[in-house]
Design a protein around this nucleic acid. Sequence first.
DNA 1: GCCTCGTGTGGAAACGTTTCCTGACGGGCT
DNA 2: AGCCCGTCAGGAAACGTTTCCACACGAGGC
Lengths: 344, 344
Amino acid sequence: MNVYVRATMKDVAALAGVGLATVSRVLNGVPVDPHLTVRVLDAARQLGYRKDTAATSLRRADRRTNTIGLVLQDVANPFSSALHRAVEDVGVQRGLLVLAGSSDEEPERERELLGVLRTRRVDGLIVVPTGAPDDELESAHRDGTPIVCVDRASPVPGVDTVTADNRGGVAGAVRALHALGHRRIGFVADHSSLWTARERHEGFAAAMAELGCRTRAGWVRRDVHTEDAARAAVTGMFGTATAPTALVTAQNWLTIGARRALVDLGLHHTVAHVGFDDFPLADMLDPPVSVIAQDPAEMGRRAALLLVSRLDGDDGPVEAVTLRTRYIARGSGELPPPATVSPS
Amino acid sequence: MNVYVRATMKDVAALAGVGLATVSRVLNGVPVDPHLTVRVLDAARQLGYRKDTAATSLRRADRRTNTIGLVLQDVANPFSSALHRAVEDVGVQRGLLVLAGSSDEEPERERELLGVLRTRRVDGLIVVPTGAPDDELESAHRDGTPIVCVDRASPVPGVDTVTADNRGGVAGAVRALHALGHRRIGFVADHSSLWTARERHEGFAAAMAELGCRTRAGWVRRDVHTEDAARAAVTGMFGTATAPTALVTAQNWLTIGARRALVDLGLHHTVAHVGFDDFPLADMLDPPVSVIAQDPAEMGRRAALLLVSRLDGDDGPVEAVTLRTRYIARGSGELPPPATVSPS
DNA sequence: GCCTCGTGTGGAAACGTTTCCTGACGGGCT
DNA sequence: AGCCCGTCAGGAAACGTTTCCACACGAGGC
């Protein structure tokens, strides 16, 4: 490996024939004699000088690192990565770099990640919290590190949040199915430890109650975490004589697993099906999948903008942004109930 | 914002009643009197002490930051994010954090990103290069920063690379189509500025030549960059009487655009179609899409492992890993040519 | 014309850590 | 028993930058 040694500010100062402080001033945009300014800039260019961020943030009064930490569920998950990208885009405009990591829904991993991020003194944090109590997050909050929780409620009180209207989204879909004549509606949701799963279930239950629809134990499956589990759950749900005529699945992998099950059973053109969260190619399946769409990019953007404003010193009251969901009718959710089924 | 001030090593030393150097030694695992060790660790815990990475890497002889830079095309793109995740997984085991960014295929953005990453003194770089000459990448290489280029050839000579066997993958698919009886095969590829697009075209052209199949200008469409452009290109290609009987699309968005076009034309059950790069739900379309799959996670993993070994001082010869592609027959690529079509 | 005030540059301290070097202590050998 | 050497802890320097402070110079006012 090359033993190349980088030019320092002292070298630039020497070459330009000015003091160290002057170089610093020029490089930080503090007005300085134009004549000296060009000498410094020339020298810097000549030496290929580059500021050392470590030294900078070590010494700076505000200790800024121009880095923000992003804790996602999984950087490879489309929802997370869309969010990531939106955060990056806001960051780029502000000269902020994003340090992202995956918690894999494990509280311990979330803690660790926050630990390393805090060690690096990130200026702020955007977190999709697992939901478990987290002393790292809490202590970061106490230290005054700006934090925005995204997609889910914060385990720590007093933290800004950006979430989707999970309840309203599901409730809306249920009402639409009801309007089509459906009365027996099944529901499949993720782990109840997840805030979103609970909210979506609440939305479902509330809408069903409001509409006077009865639910049966076998028609509501919670704590279903994987595509395969959803496939199995739905296969079971529709294997009986008294099966629902419509189905709501509360997460995109579950939606896909459910669709696979419906295809297996030959019911994909018979059972109305609405999924929460859009996914690529949903419109190319047969029938195209109707979804309650949330906008991860918008969530990321809002969270990043909120964080940036906090970084800029905005100390207004805690914000809790709720983004509306959008129902996208593509076909699968518009299938009417079979005429032979007796009402209620 | 809280004016909380973090405990420093000096505070720990004072509380433990030991010297500064001893605290440093304990925290870095240098053997020290066990009695003192526990005193230091206790004091550190008590104060909630946390090492400051900025100061550490500023002073350390090796200047390590335990951070690696990852320049992707777009963190939100499934290929990129799968790669990202694999890199992260290797990094976690080594205590390396990943600083990722999106170049959006723009050389200038790639340069900028590399610039900030270098300013932060990342220990190494993993880059999906746009392919344009890049002085930042070159100068990083000269400085001795370990670099691994992924998915595409490096614009800078002497850099380790991990790529897929693009030529072989496409050639294999063409041979398979030929074996089914296809002689007229269309091809759609991305911008020729992209190394992968060029390689895949080479593979196509070589296989066609080897098999003695003629190609027509209208049957080979290059520089097609978006899903919509692919849709339009394929619509045009199959709008004429003398259309191909099979189609190879060299990138996953192009594959999807092409499939849309075939559906529009009612030809999706008639024209054989193979896409390069797998994508979610390819198996749920009708007919399921056969693909030449590469494994982005494996690419990321190999690249990260290679980088890590370079970080560990491995100064062996430049490596150029080529990963095999895998043909996944799902149906769309197994459609035979219409019997009425005259051979050749 | 001299003194004062203001502007702006240069030197030095400081940020929190690692590393070098010095000094003290203890043990072993003569 | 005395001396020397080795081991190990502590103090201080150093990393590259920002910030504080002192000082020099020029201009303006009396």
